[in-house]
Design a protein around this nucleic acid. Sequence first.
DNA 1: GCCAACGTTGGC
DNA 2: GCCAACGTTGGC
Length: 140
Amino acid sequence: MPTPARQYWLVKSEPDVFSFDDLVASPKQTTTWDGVRNYAARNHLRAMKKGDQVLFYHSSTKPQAIVGIAEVVREAYPDPADGEWSAVDLRGVDKLKRAVTLEEIKKKKGLETMALLRIGRLSVQPVTPKEFETIISMSS
DNA sequence: GCCAACGTTGGC
DNA sequence: GCCAACGTTGGC
């Protein structure tokens, strides 16, 4: 079977609760991404494949920004607290040299259609390869 | 199965 | 701290 194309995602976290630095400081830089209780978000979790790249976004903080890149290291399995829901394991890969703020994303041509801007409250969302690339280019 | 009430997210 | 957006719950 051919290797499937790598997919891209974005997850939100309140840094006061769990920041990207917390992820990197975790054993093996890996944590269980659980507690998601929204069906759209759950479906995205279930679609994640090992090796997919995940933008790590800090919400409810100043400034809100994408701060790092994580990677899916374990595909969806039952949420430890409630098996009806799903969890994945994420490993912190790279902290962005420069955080890409929500304000910059709003202004950037080509990112108008990012789920981050369109679907405010979705905590796990898909990102297109082009959007991913643009964010990376903005971070250096 | 509809929809009003309620709860939560998250930008401002 | 406010409140808009919107997902979820529960009565009917």
